[in-house]
Design a protein around this nucleic acid. Structure first.
Lengths: 340, 340
DNA sequence: GATAATTTTGTTAGCGTTAACGATGTCAAT
DNA sequence: ATTGACATCGTTAACGCTAACAAAATTATC
């Protein structure tokens, strides 16, 4: 059986509280006894029982992380960055996958809520369904939104400027001389509508007429990009260039184009978003929009720790951290190639 | 404040135990009262307090997963597969990254041990250091090894046949006509030595002399493969074909070769192992050895649940599940190309 | 040197749950 | 009617820890 505070207390002939104080580094204990206790604890191999501690303090030292797809390097890198802050602070990270499924997300958030001190969520919910989160927050839940946030839910969040992402990507294509530019549009989430908005703004800015036939709905996965592109190819009237809502869909589109024998970037140019890990090594290295995921994860973790550790639900304005996106030019956009 | 058993008990005018029994679906309660309690619990929005439950039962309903690199799609897919079994069974999965660092692994295993019901470990420790795990098991720790296991640690494990992996990869290269075949050798872990052994066996079987100059030490990351390949290129005397210990190192090698203007597979052919997600979409699609990760994760999760739920430390022989590897032929090996 | 101020330690109770046992009620068999 | 078997429900204590208060020991103050 593991060593308990009581064991140490008995061995040293002091009270449990004294031991507890030493272990938790409380100021109200003499440095001498603290040293004695810590030494004994070390020698006896004491490991605190988090369940008992949690029951007494209403803390779990667990942070929940809810992501749509862990196999997407984007979220795996975020997870890693979050962990690198959380663990040294004494928290473990509980990762949950939702597969971009709203039902699953709701179920997992509900389950995780009482098992963790707070949740970092990259939500797949639509803006309308986000009321759930408003309710949770008013019940005292500690949430930090990651990558995706909700306008009407007042919670800290770390996101990128997705309108700018769409603008950078689309404007880059325009600057390369393309005029007939399509968009593979993600569905549901705010990120997707913002990127679409950026796409529109770029067109507007350069006086290119917005043509809704050039905007094709699509999911957020590689498979969805593949399927959307396949059906587009089948229908014909392909645009000269495409801004895909994210890198997985861009890669899916790339596969479909390759399969159909359509040259990238010579026949169709592609730009993605979100700098997937292997984008640079692809058959056609993928031009994309990148932002600092390590920074993003760190910030989210820090916001979470702050939210947990100041115990008031909110002091003053909620913090929204915005990470700046930047274009990464590679081959798939046709930069350096003779475009018309 | 959340609803407790006491609240429900009071509301219904029964004892807490009755409520507890209903919630936990114990047989010693009348179906009628159980229904009443469950209905009330549902209506009041009762969520069990896992900390308290855990304190009383010595269970946490948490499974720890320790992996060397979550951003490697290999481990992310395993994690996802494990989660898909664990969550429906009422367990959450606590994922920890070790970056292939033995120190970190030991620290995290030690920390996680008492916070979880059991640990699924893809260990980075060498066989010698594995004594730690023998000790933990003798102290009652519940471990399942994943992807990598230890000969002398009697614990359930789910692995592939890594000797066969090496053999399949190398023999494929031999069958393609190559004779001067090199190996980027992973270090430390059993997986690497097994794959090296497979490489040797393949050479032996085809009466090709083993030349230790053709075996270059290397880590397990993309970066290590890149560096190892770069120095090999700098030294010259490249082999005609290379079996890399895994896909990340193979991809690193690919990058180094590309950078040096060396054609793959025309000048140097490459085979990896472990079927990384984007291997098929690379500049030169990567020939590799694949095995079923979903199956692997499922099996590991099931072994873990079994180990947790039968409370005896071991009944009969320890189960070792072996997932069969199979070659995936793509372009990097030069199949279909005119080899000499 | 007595008292107050301060520092250090101990005691009690409780966090929400379940295990173990005890109590009650019901029913059938004697 | 008495006994016992069985089903159902309740009481008590404990899990390991900490908050809040109480007590003791030490130091400072005049």
């Amino acid at each position: 059986m593991p060593v308990t505070l009581a064991d140490i207390a008995e061995a040293l002939g002091v009270s449990m509280m004294t031991v507890s104080r030493a272990i938790n580094n409380r100021p109200t204990i003499s440095t001498e006894t603290r040293a004695r206790v810590l030494e004994a604890a070390r020698a006896m191999g004491y490991q605190p029982n988090h369940q008992a501690r949690g029951l007494a303090t209403k803390r779990t030292f667990l942070i929940g992380l809810v992501v749509p797809d862990l196999t997407h390097s984007y979220f795996a890198e975020l997870a890693k960055a979050i962990e690198s802050i959380a663990r040294p602070a004494g928290y473990e990270v509980l990762i949950c996958n939702t597969d971009e499924d709203a039902e699953k997300e709701i179920a997992e958030v509900t389950a995780l809520r009482h098992r963790t001190d707070g949740l970092i969520i990259a939500s797949s919910l639509t803006q309308e369904k986000a009321d759930l989160y408003r309710k949770l927050i008013s019940k005292g839940a500690k949430l930090v939104f990651l990558d995706r946030h909700f306008a009407r839910v007042g919670s800290p969040a770390v996101v990128t400027d997705n309108v700018l992402v769409g603008l950078l990507a689309t404007e880059h294509l325009i600057n390369l001389g393309y005029r007939r530019i399509g968009h593979l549009q993600g569905i549901g989430i705010r990120v997707a509508t913002d990127r679409l908005e950026g796409y529109r703004q770029a067109l507007l800015k350069h006086k290119i007429r917005f043509d809704e036939k050039l905007v094709r709905p699509c999911g957020l996965f590689e498979q969805s990009g593949y399927e959307a592109m396949r059906s587009w190819i089948a229908e014909g009237k392909l645009p000269r260039a495409i801004f895909a809502v994210n890198d997985p869909t861009a890669i899916g589109a790339l596969s479909a184009l390759y399969e159909a024998g359509i040259q990238v970037p010579n026949e169709v140019a592609i730009v993605g978003a979100g700098a997937i890990h292997y984008g640079v090594l692809l058959r056609v290295p993928l031009t994309t929009v990148d932002w600092d995921l390590i920074e993003m994860g760190h910030q989210a973790a820090r916001l979470m720790l702050e939210t947990i550790e100041r115990n008031k639900p909110k002091n003053g304005r909620q913090r929204i951290v915005i990470v700046n996106p930047a274009l990464v030019v590679r081959k798939s956009c046709g930069a350096g190639v003779n475009n018309k």
